[in-house]
């Protein structure tokens, strides 16, 4: 029913099921207190949400494409990005295999950040 699109996954219920723990963790980051808790002790925070070791490792390594592949929805991923100082463009540059500066150089308006 859903046709593949180059270089991306399509977030359907199977991916949502796979990413359930990760997305719940991300959803919690919409609260300032939870963001503080995450920044204070990432390991304890991840354990609270029952992440597998593999999932924890993806967060430890800030492996954004890995997190997407593990079922993190892009709009949830933004919350982890924000909590770790990685805005959308920084995460995107990593997914493209570029530096932030290299990515910005591909944009029409480099100051539009």
């Amino acid at each position: 029913m859903l046709r593949p699109i180059p270089d991306t996954s399509i977030f359907d219920l199977r991916l949502a099921q796979r990413g359930r723990r990760l997305n719940k963790l991300c959803a919690a980051l919409c609260s300032p207190a939870e963001r503080d808790a995450f920044k204070r002790d990432e390991e304890a925070f991840m354990s609270r949400f029952g992440l597998t070791d593999a999932e924890k490792d993806l967060i430890r390594k800030r492996d954004f494409q890995g997190l997407i592949d593990a079922g993190t929805n892009i709009y949830y991923l933004l919350k982890i990005g924000s909590a770790t100082g990685n805005g959308l463009y920084k995460m995107g540059a990593q997914m493209r295999g570029e530096t932030y500066e290299q990515f910005l150089a591909t944009r029409n308006m480099r100051g539009a950040v």
């Binding site: 270089d7 991306t8 494409q65 892009i74 995107g92 997914m95 493209r96 990515f103 944009r107």
Partner: peptide, 8 residues
Amino acid sequence: QLQGKRFG
């Protein structure tokens, strides 16, 4: 496109 190698 917001993810993958074709980000942006």
